[in-house]
Write a protein that binds this DNA or RNA. Structure first.
Length: 258
DNA sequence: AAGCCATGCAACCGCGGCATA
DNA sequence: GTATGCCGCGGTTGCATGGCT
């Protein structure tokens, strides 16, 4: 049994939004919100549009907190690291970037960043340490602001606890990424949460996904990392809060080095 | 100047998840 | 347990623009 259509597609307008339509939508949402129902919004607002189209226009373009324009190197790093770890979960990746939408990130990856990485231009940059962990179905990411320094040094504590240098080294993941040869169809990943772990608790489960990068580790190492994260992540954080939390993690790591 | 092509991005589509009756 | 309806997501499409020949 099929789903009934959300609107009469033959009667509603499709295609690019006009300035007038934009202002109607902006004014309506500003005054009334979406009322928890996008489907009925266009009728109430006097727009001849599908509710889904209104939602998309608002979320991807008209929202006041959206940041347009070029992506920074930092954003490149975060997108790269998250994609390498969790795949094309654009909404999760976007939630770690202030003011970026999943559509923005997806388009940026598909049109620019993917090429930038596979062309090797990414290689000359100081790729910082980025890690991702998943706990209680929530993805956490941490990036050290002073990561270049950190990665240029050996860290005996991490080595002894984690047992493998490149767990924390996204540059290593990048090398693997380049060596594996990226193709547009080669984008499946393994969910870190369900990746197999059959070794003893002291061994590292380095899960190689199809991009040849490191995605997860489990066992004692997981506990170590979650302990570290739990000092900074009392709750789920997204967007602007994340940078602050990342700085806290960076401090923790710096302390552990000194 | 005109035509072609590549690129970037806004928007659409369809499906799965979830809540509710 | 099942049907219904909305939301959110990822994949894809198509148009506008700019560069090249």
């Amino acid at each position: 049994m099929g789903r009934s259509p959300c609107c009469d597609k033959a009667k509603v307008k499709k295609g690019p939004w006009s300035n007038e339509e934009d202002s109607i939508l902006v004014n309506f949402v500003a005054n009334h919100g979406n009322g928890g129902n996008w489907i009925s919004l266009p009728k109430q607002a006097g727009l001849n549009r599908c509710g889904k189209s209104c939602r998309l226009r608002w979320l991807n373009y008209l929202r006041p907190d959206i940041r347009h324009g070029d992506f920074t190197d930092d954003e490149d790093y975060i997108i790269y690291a998250l994609y390498n770890n969790i795949g094309s979960k654009w909404s999760v990746i976007a939630s770690n970037l202030t003011g970026r939408t999943d559509n923005d990130v997806k388009n940026y990856w598909n049109t620019k960043l993917k090429k930038k990485i596979s062309s090797g231009k990414f290689k000359n940059m100081n790729i910082p340490m980025v890690n991702i962990s998943k706990h209680n179905n929530t993805y956490y990411s941490g990036r050290s602001n002073s990561s270049t320094e950190l990665l240029d040094r050996s860290h005996p504590f991490l080595h002894s606890q984690v047992g493998q240098d490149d767990i924390f080294d996204t540059r290593k993941g990048y090398e693997n990424f380049i060596q594996s040869g990226y193709t547009s169809s080669n984008n499946s990943v393994t969910d870190p949460e369900i990746s197999s772990y059959s070794g003893s608790s002291s061994s590292v489960d380095v899960n190689q996904n199809s991009l040849g990068s490191i995605t997860s580790f489990k066992g004692e190492e997981d506990e170590f990392w979650m302990d570290l994260l739990s000092d900074s992540f009392d709750d789920v954080v997204h967007g602007s809060q994340l940078e602050e939390k990342i700085s806290e993690i960076a401090s923790l790591l710096d302390d552990s080095f000194s």
